[in-house]
């Protein structure tokens, strides 16, 4: 979806390369920047394709296998297309006690997706996330880079732009 919609050049842009190398300069070995390098690609493309992964590996003097081993370990590196906004629904203990299961269900009902799914318009991907460190405002959600506190059904309307599923 996103891959086709936003088909940018399969080659990393100059800006992407510059940012990856800038991150690499923070470490005595370039491979130290593997996670941040992948995050640079994700910032521009939403996810990390095989082509992108190979180019980042080349920039960081790593093998593709090594970098993919890293990429697939970390849950916030996406190796398949995701929606324009990723909804991270906290399911850890404090949010669970205050109804995060219900919030997740409401999102699923509204968007017609389960955990791991992406809406057909490519707008949202829904994923579970560990404690977001805002337990005094449970239940919480992160949509894109934005954290939402004390989420209830009314607030979901605003957050999800009252979309019909």
């Amino acid at each position: 979806m996103r891959d086709q919609d936003m088909r940018v050049d399969s080659q990393l842009s100059e800006a992407e390369i510059a940012e990856v190398l800038e991150e690499a300069s923070h470490y005595p070995e370039k491979s130290g920047a593997s996670i941040e390098g992948l995050k640079v690609v994700q910032k521009y493309r939403g996810w990390v394709s095989n082509e992108s992964l190979k180019q980042v590996a080349d920039l960081l003097d790593m093998s593709v296998e090594e970098l993919d081993g890293v990429a697939t370990f970390y849950n916030l590196i996406y190796r398949q297309p995701v929606g324009r906004k990723v909804i991270l629904c906290c399911d850890s203990v404090s949010c669970w006690m205050l109804g995060s299961d219900n919030i997740k269900q409401k999102i699923s009902d509204r968007l017609g997706i389960e955990y791991g799914g992406t809406t057909s318009d490519g707008e949202y991907t829904l994923l579970p996330i560990v404690c977001l460190g805002a337990c005094d405002h449970a239940p919480v959600l992160m949509v894109g880079d934005e954290l939402h506190h004390n989420v209830d059904e009314a607030q979901l309307d605003q957050i999800l732009n009252t979309r019909a599923s």
Partner: peptide, 27 residues
């Protein structure tokens, strides 16, 4: 002084796993 922004996984908080993560490896 550098800021390293990670990409998830609770195990990264374990001291030695964190070092592997900071080296750009699996944590």
């Amino acid at each position: 002084l550098y800021l390293h922004s990670s990409a998830g996984r609770y195990i990264c908080g374990e001291e030695t796993a964190l070092l592997n993560a900071l080296e750009g490896k699996r944590a």
